Amino acid sequence: MTIRPLTVTAAGALLGTSALFLTAAPTATAADRADATAVREGSPVPVAHRGASGYAPENTLAAVDKAHSMGIDWVETDVQRTKDGELIVMHDTTLSRTTDVEQRFPDRSPWKVSDFTLKEIRGLDAGGWFDSRYKGEKVPTLDQFLDRVDHNRQRLLLELKSPELYPGIERQTLRELGSEGWLGRSHRSKLIVQSFNADAVKRVHHYRSEVKTGFLGTPKPEELNSYARFADQINPSYKDVSESYVKAVHAVRGPHHRPLEVFTWTVNDAATARKVTDAGVDGIISNKPDVVTGALRAAGTDD
C-alpha cells in the first residue's frame, strides 16, 4: 500500500457550548474535497498507536523503531509533565502499569507522573513489564521522542494526555515542538496535535493556528460545524464509526478550509480495519499497524 503525505488538521473543543455554537463552519464543496485528494483517494493512513505497541513497550523509542521497521509513517504518542516541569512520553497518568515504579518506590502510591521528577522517572525500567528482551528501556522525554521520529523520517500524531492536570502544557508543548523544528514549514505536514480535552485543542489552535489539531471523541453531527471552527479532524473510537457519520464529518470544512477528516482508534484486527475503511475513514490508529496494512492490501487485491 502506498502511504501518501497527509494534509490533516484535527477537530474540536468544548469551551462552553454557548460560545461554541455561535457560528457555523461552511459546508465543504466537491472542489474542497478534490483539494484533499492526498488523503481522500486510496486506503486510510495506518498510525502506530504509542508506537508499534503490540510488539514493543508502548511509548518507548523501541516502539517507534518497530513501527519504522514495518514501514509505518505515522506514530501516535502521549505527552505529560513531571513534578519538575519536564515533558515526557507516557500514556497513563500513573507510572505503575508500564514501569517498575512500585518496586523502586513502594511508599509513593499512587505513583502519579506529576509526583516524580524527570531524574526519578528516567531511572525506571519501562520495558521489562512488556518482555524481558526490553528490560532497561527508558521513558523518553518529549525531545528524545521527537528526535527519534525525525531521525526515522516519520510523522507524529501527538496527544496531550489529561492536560487539565498540567496547566499551561499546551503552550509548553508548542515551545518544545518549535525548539525541535517541528513547527517549521518542512515539518508542518508531519504533525497533528490532538486531545480528548476540547479546551486544550482550542488553545493549541489559538496559540499556533497553523498547527493541525484533532479532537478525540464523537460530537453529534449537528455539532460538527462548531468544532470545525478551530479543528480539522474528528477522531472517534472505531465503535462509533459508521459510513453516515464519516460522511457527515467529511461534509464540513475545518479552519484551514479543508474537509474535516476522521482518524479512528484503536483497530487491531483485519475485520475491523476493513469495516472502518469501507466507512470512509482517513486514518486507522492501531497497536498492530502491520495487521491494518495487511488487511488493506488484501482488500485492494480483492477489488
Rank of each mutant, 00 (worst) to 15 (best):
A31P: 00
A31K: 14
E41W: 02
A34E: 15
A52P: 07
L14I: 06
G51M: 07
A30K: 10
P44N: 08
A25F: 03
H49S: 09
P26H: 13
A30W: 01
S18V: 06
E41R: 09
R40Y: 05
R33D: 02
G16Q: 06
S18P: 00
P44L: 02
T23N: 12
T23Y: 10
E41K: 07
A34S: 14
P26V: 04
A31I: 06
T17H: 13
L22C: 01
A38D: 13
L22I: 01
F21A: 09
T29R: 02
S43E: 07
L14Q: 08
F21V: 11
G16F: 03
S18Q: 10
A52Y: 15
T17V: 13
T17W: 14
L14G: 03
A25E: 07
V47W: 09
A24H: 11
A36T: 04
R33A: 10
H49A: 08
R50W: 15
F21R: 14
T27Q: 10
T37H: 01
G51F: 05
A52H: 15
H49I: 06
D32T: 08
G51E: 09
L22Q: 13
T27C: 00
P46K: 06
A48P: 05
T37K: 06
T27F: 02
R40G: 00
A28Q: 05
G16A: 09
T23R: 15
A25T: 08
A25K: 10
V39Y: 00
D32K: 04
V39G: 00
V45T: 15
H49K: 10
A19V: 04
A48T: 12
V45F: 01
A31C: 02
D32I: 05
V39R: 01
A25C: 05
A30G: 01
S18F: 06
L15N: 12
A36H: 01
H49W: 07
S18Y: 06
A28V: 03
A36G: 00
G51N: 07
S43C: 04
R33H: 02
A48N: 11
V45M: 13
T27Y: 02
E41Q: 11
P44D: 02
L15Q: 10
H49L: 08
A48K: 08
A31H: 07
A36N: 12
A19C: 01
A38Q: 11
S43M: 12
P44T: 03
A28I: 03
A48D: 10
A25I: 03
V47G: 04
P26N: 12
A38G: 09
L15Y: 12
A34T: 13
G16H: 08
P44S: 06
L22N: 04
G51A: 11
T37F: 00
A36M: 03
H49D: 09
A19E: 11
R40L: 12
L15V: 11
A28Y: 03
R33T: 06
A28G: 04
V47P: 02
